[in-house]
Amino acid sequence: MSEHILSSKLYYGIWIALMVLTVVTAGVATIDLGPFNTIVALLIATSKALLVILFFMHVKYTSEKLTKMVIISSIFWLLLLLFLSLTDYGTRYAGHG
């Protein structure tokens, strides 16, 4: 892993993007989009998280595949937990909204 010293301009750019997205997500939540409110909120959160991971945590610039593997597999495991639980909760019984 070689060290990359990124320009501070890039950091400020990411920071502004994160601020804008925060304001947007809070604003969009007050508009009725039906089921899309949740989807938009999660999409914005994910893009914010990606900005932090890729730039602030330097994952975009690391030559190390292992770091990416660790991130991807931990997210995969989290999804395993959620989806396999849902095989039960999604089909259990009527009566819960």
């Binding site: 997500t25 939540a29 409110n37 909120a41 959160a45």
Partner: peptide
């Protein structure tokens, strides 16, 4: 993630 999941569930 906590911010939208806890604060923004339903702000219509």
């Amino acid at each position: 993630y906590l911010f939208p999941l806890l604060y923004l569930i339903d702000r219509k």
